[in-house]
Design a protein around this nucleic acid. Structure first.
Lengths: 220, 220, 220, 220
DNA sequence: GATGAATGAGAATTCATTCAT
DNA sequence: AATGAATGAATTCTCATTCAT
C-alpha cells in the first residue's frame, strides 16, 4: 500500500465513523477495564481498542475518571431502570421477585464486560461518593423493599423481617452468584440460577416445610 | 555485661524490632489502602503513616504489590483459619453455621481497615490468580458445604439443594451485610446481624412458618 | 490545498520531525555520555541537552540503555562500514592499510564525542555481549587479516606472522593513538598520525633496515 | 546451632579477622567490579563478597569511589613499580623491552580481576583527573622512552622515530593483547605472547628482513 | 473534529551512607 | 571495631493530558 492510498483510506474511515465514536470509546474502555481493571488501564490502551487517537477520547470524555462516571451514569443506569420496569409489569410479589432476579442475571450475562467492571470497580467507585451510584443502589434496594412489603400484604412473605437485612441478603446473594459466574469464565448459563435462587430466598435451606411457594421442587 | 548476655539481648531486640516494624508498616498500609484504595495509595503515604522512611518499606516488602500479597497471606489467612476452628468446636449444623457467621462478622468488625481492604480489593486482587486467595475462598465454601451436608444428615437442612448455589447464597449475603456496615461508617454493631441472618438462611423470607429460631427477633 | 497534498505533507513533516528528534536526542546523549560517562549521565541531563522533555526520550528509546545500544547499532556501525568500503577501493595491501588507518583516525577526529564514548564505554558495553558490537569488532579484525594476507601474497608482508597477534597489535596501537588524542583534548590533528603509524606497523622500531616503504618517512 | 553458640562463633570469627580486613574488602571489591563493573556494583555486594557488614567498609574506605582510588593507588601502582624494577635490572634495550612486556603480561595474568578492572575502568577513571593514575601512565611511557632512547644509542633502534607515537604504539598493542585475553576468558597463556609481540615492535610486519631476533619463532 | 507527538508531574524503587547498639 | 537497620536523595520511567497541525 502506498502513501496516498494508505492515508486516504484512513481519512475516509475516520469520517464515516464520526457519529458513534462515543459508544465505541465507552465500549472499548469497558472492555479494557474488564480485562485489566480501571487503574491498570491506560488511555492509550483504550484508544487503541476503540481505534481512535488518544486525544480523541478527550473530545468525548473529560478525563479518564469521567469514562467510569459515564459508565455508571448511562450504561449501568439503563439496566437498573430496566429492573424497575419488569418489576412494575408483574403482579404478585413472588412473580416480581423472580422477574427481578431473572432480568438481573440476564442483563449481566448479556454484557459480560459490563458485569466484570460493575462487580470489580463498584467498591472502589463508592469512595467517590457519586450520587448516581448511591441512587441506583437505593433504587435496587427500594424495589426489593416494595416487593417484600407487597408479599407481606399478600401473606406470601413473613412479617417478622428486618427489612434492611432482607435487602442485603437478597442483593448480596445475587451479586455473589454473578461473581462466581465471572470467575468461572462465564462458562455456564447464569439465568438458570434465577429460580433456584429465589426458592432459597423464600424457603431458606431449613428442612421440613410446607410453604406452597417452595413446594414445587419435590422433596421439600 | 558479659559477651553472652550482651549478644543475646541484641539478638532479641533485633528480632522484636523487625517484627514491630513489619507490623507497623503492614498496619499502616492497610489503613492507607482502606482510606484511598490500593492503587491510589503511594509508598510515601504508607511510609508516613508508619512513621518510617520510604526506603524502609523495601526492607520488609519486595514492592508495593507485595504488601497486598502479605496482607492476604498473613492477616487475612489468620482469620479464615479462625473460622475453621470455631466451626470444628460446635456440634450441630445450625450451631456451626451460627458460629461461623458470628465469628465472621466479629472479626471483620474488630478490624475495620482489614474489612474495608478485604471487601474492596479482593475483586481486583483476584486478577492475580493468587493461589492463597483461591485457597482461602475455597476453604470458606468448603466449611459451608460441610455444615450444610451435616445439617442434611441431621434432618435440619433440606436435601434438595444445589450446593454450589447455597454456598454463594450464604457467602454473598454475609459479604453484603459487611459492605453495608462499612458504607454506613461502621456505626452499628455488626455482630447482632448474625442470628437474624442465619434465620433468613434457614427459613427464608417465605410466610407461614413456625421455626422457633427465627421468631424471637422482633423486627430489627 | 486538497486532501492528497495536505495529508502527504503531514506524513512527510511527521517523518522528518521524528528523525530530527531522534537524531537530536541521540546526539545530545552522546555529548552528555562523552562528558560524564554513561552511568553518571541522567535522562534529565540528556533531555535538557536535547531541548526536549524527559518523557520525550522514551518515545524514541526504550530506556536509557537503549540509547547506548542504538549508538552502537547505528552511529558506530556506520563508521565501521565506511572502513570496509575504503579498503575495498584500494589496490595494494599497504595502500589498503594506510587508507584504513587514515579513515579510522579521520572519522574519530570528525566526531569527537562519538570517539570518546566509543573508547570509554566499549569495555563496559562488552559485558552485555551485544552481537552487534562483536560483529563490528570482528569486521575490523577481518579487514586487517585480509589486508595482511594480501600483503603476504604480494611479498610486502612477512609470512612468519601469528595473525591473531598482528590484528591486536594494529588495532591496539590505533586505539591508543586515539585515546591519547582524546586525553590531550583533541588539540592536534589526529590524521597526521596515520602514515607514521603505518610505517611503524610495517617496519617496526628496529634499526639498520633498507625497506623502501619505511625508510626515512618524509616520503610517507 | 542455638542462639548462644551461633552468636559467640560470629563474635570470635570477627575478632580473629580484624587485621586483614582492608585487603579482604579491597580484593572482594575488585572481584565484584570485575564481574559487574564499578557503577553496577553495590556496597552490599562487596560487603557480602568480603564477608563483612556494609557499614564496615566505611571504616576502611571513605566511600565507594575511594575503593577504586585505593585500587589505583596501591594495587595497581605496586605493579607499575615492579615494571620499573625489572627494566632497571636488564642491560640492553631489547632485553629491557622484552622484560617489560613479559612482566606486564605476567602480572596481569596473575591477577585476572585486577586486569579486568584496570582495562575496563581506567577510561572512566581518567575523568577524575587523578594525579596518581596520570603519574603511573607517565611512568610507563617514560620507561618506554628510556628504553627506546637507549636502543637508539646502541644502534638497535632507528633514530627517525616520533617518540610520542612509539610510546602509544607499544602501550596500545600490549593493552589490546591483554583485552583479547580477557575477552577470551583468560583461556590461554598470555605470557607466551610477549616475545612475538616484541618482535613485531622491533621488526614490524614488513617483508624482506633478516633481523635475527624475529626469525626464531616459527609461525606463532 | 481528529490526531498523536510532546509534555512534565508524579510514583516506585535503589543504594550509598550513617549511626545507635 | 563491627554491625546492619534505617534513611532519603536521586533516578528512571509512566501516563494522563494538552495542543499545534
Amino acid at each position: 500500500m502506498n502513501v496516498h492510498s494508505y492515508l486516504i483510506e484512513r481519512f475516509i474511515i475516520a469520517k464515516k465513523k464520526n457519529t458513534d465514536k462515543y459508544q465505541r470509546i465507552l465500549d472499548a474502555a469497558i472492555k479494557v477495564f474488564a480485562e485489566q481493571g480501571f487503574f491498570q488501564s491506560t488511555i492509550a490502551q483504550i484508544a487503541k481498542a476503540a481505534g481512535v487517537a488518544d486525544g480523541t477520547i478527550y473530545l468525548y470524555f473529560k478525563n479518564k475518571d469521567d469514562i467510569l462516571v459515564q459508565f455508571y451514569q448511562y450504561k449501568t443506569r439503563q439496566i437498573f431502570e430496566r429492573f424497575r420496569d419488569v418489576v412494575n409489569r408483574s403482579k404478585t410479589a413472588e412473580e416480581k421477585l423472580r422477574c427481578l432476579i431473572r432480568v438481573h442475571l440476564q442483563e449481566f450475562q448479556k454484557d459480560r464486560n459490563m458485569a466484570i467492571v460493575y462487580q470489580a470497580e463498584t467498591h472502589q467507585y463508592y469512595r467517590r461518593n457519586d450520587e448516581n451510584l448511591k441512587e441506583m443502589s437505593k433504587m435496587y434496594r427500594d424495589i426489593i423493599s416494595e416487593v417484600v412489603e407487597l408479599g407481606q400484604e399478600e401473606g406470601a412473605i413473613r412479617k417478622d423481617l428486618y427489612m434492611g437485612l432482607v435487602k442485603r441478603f437478597i442483593n448480596g446473594a445475587v451479586d455473589e452468584v454473578i461473581n462466581s459466574w465471572i470467575h468461572a469464565g462465564g462458562q455456564y448459563d447464569l439465568v438458570t440460577m434465577a429460580d433456584p435462587l429465589v426458592d432459597l430466598f423464600i424457603s431458606g435451606i431449613g428442612g421440613c416445610r410446607n410453604t406452597g411457594s417452595t413446594g414445587d421442587h419435590p422433596t421439600g
